[in-house]
Simulated scan of single mutants.
Amino acid sequence: MTIYLSRARSVPMLKSGVGRWLAIALLVLILDQASKHTIEALFQFGEQLTIIPGFFNLTLAYNPGAAFSFLADAGGWQRYFFTALALGVSVFIVFLLKKHHAETRYALAMSLILGGALGNAIDRMLLGHVIDFIQIHYQQRWYYPAFNIADSGICVGAVLMVIDSFRRETPSEKTV
């Protein structure tokens, strides 16, 4: 992958190694933050816009906790805990990307998780909560908790990690 800044120059760091994976993480982060800012500018808290009736809405929700509003009512300490956790995990992921940059599926998974973790950490640091806006539901009977692009990156990355763990060669399978 080469990113062209102009017709004459490219960014050689992105051609191989860890740079291309960091670029994917940055793309997830940018898409996440841009979408959150757009939704927050267009919606009032709790407002919903039906996109696909009976299935998909856009809404503006705030989550002071973690996934599925875990610890949302914990009194405020969770903001710092989850921010520190996301930043610590992000540093570890960059280390893993440097070590495993040639393993495409694994590095892609780590990149998606990294971009998502940083996207939600930025919300927690600046706002004290995470902005969620994607709402999947069935009719008016069942609602999945609202989520965002960062959450999607983390989930897709986790699924890719599981797939990678099943498809990874063990030392006994490698041919000499």
Results as ranks from 00 to 15, higher is better:
5 L>W: 11
6 S>R: 13
7 R>S: 10
7 R>I: 00
9 R>D: 04
10 S>V: 11
10 S>H: 10
10 S>A: 08
11 V>D: 07
13 M>A: 15
13 M>V: 14
14 L>V: 03
15 K>P: 00
15 K>T: 02
15 K>G: 01
18 V>P: 01
21 W>R: 10
21 W>N: 09
23 A>C: 08
23 A>D: 01
24 I>A: 13
30 I>S: 04
31 L>I: 13
31 L>M: 14
32 D>G: 04
34 A>S: 12
35 S>Y: 07
38 T>D: 01
38 T>I: 11
38 T>C: 05
39 I>H: 09
39 I>T: 05
39 I>P: 02
39 I>E: 11
41 A>M: 09
43 F>Q: 08
44 Q>R: 13
46 G>M: 12
47 E>T: 04
48 Q>D: 08
48 Q>C: 00
50 T>H: 02
50 T>Q: 14
50 T>E: 15
53 P>I: 05
55 F>P: 00
55 F>I: 06
56 F>I: 03
57 N>H: 15
57 N>K: 14
57 N>Y: 14
58 L>E: 11
59 T>N: 11
60 L>V: 05
60 L>H: 07
61 A>L: 14
63 N>I: 04
63 N>A: 04
64 P>W: 13
65 G>Y: 13
66 A>W: 05
67 A>P: 00
69 S>V: 01
69 S>K: 06
69 S>M: 04
70 F>R: 01
72 A>D: 01
73 D>Y: 07
76 G>Y: 13
76 G>P: 04
77 W>C: 07
78 Q>W: 06
78 Q>L: 04
79 R>T: 12
80 Y>D: 07
81 F>W: 08
82 F>H: 06
83 T>V: 06
84 A>E: 02
85 L>T: 08
86 A>D: 08
86 A>E: 09
87 L>K: 07
88 G>D: 06
92 F>H: 03
96 L>D: 02
98 K>L: 12
100 H>I: 00
101 H>M: 01
102 A>Y: 10
103 E>F: 09
104 T>G: 11
105 R>A: 04
106 Y>A: 05
106 Y>W: 14
107 A>V: 01
109 A>P: 06
110 M>D: 03
111 S>T: 06
111 S>Y: 10
111 S>M: 05
112 L>C: 03
114 L>S: 03
117 A>P: 11
119 G>A: 11
119 G>D: 11
119 G>C: 11
124 R>F: 05
124 R>Y: 13
125 M>N: 01
126 L>E: 10
127 L>R: 15
128 G>M: 12
130 V>T: 12
132 D>T: 07
134 I>N: 03
135 Q>I: 00
137 H>V: 03
138 Y>K: 01
141 R>M: 09
143 Y>H: 12
144 Y>R: 04
144 Y>I: 07
144 Y>A: 04
144 Y>P: 01
144 Y>L: 09
145 P>K: 14
145 P>W: 14
147 F>H: 09
147 F>V: 02
148 N>R: 03
149 I>W: 05
150 A>I: 07
151 D>K: 02
153 G>W: 08
154 I>W: 11
155 C>W: 05
155 C>T: 15
155 C>F: 13
156 V>F: 12
157 G>D: 06
158 A>K: 00
158 A>Q: 01
162 V>Q: 02
165 S>T: 15
166 F>S: 00
167 R>H: 05
168 R>A: 13
168 R>V: 07
168 R>S: 12
168 R>K: 15
171 P>F: 09
171 P>V: 03
171 P>N: 08
172 S>I: 00
175 T>E: 05
175 T>L: 12
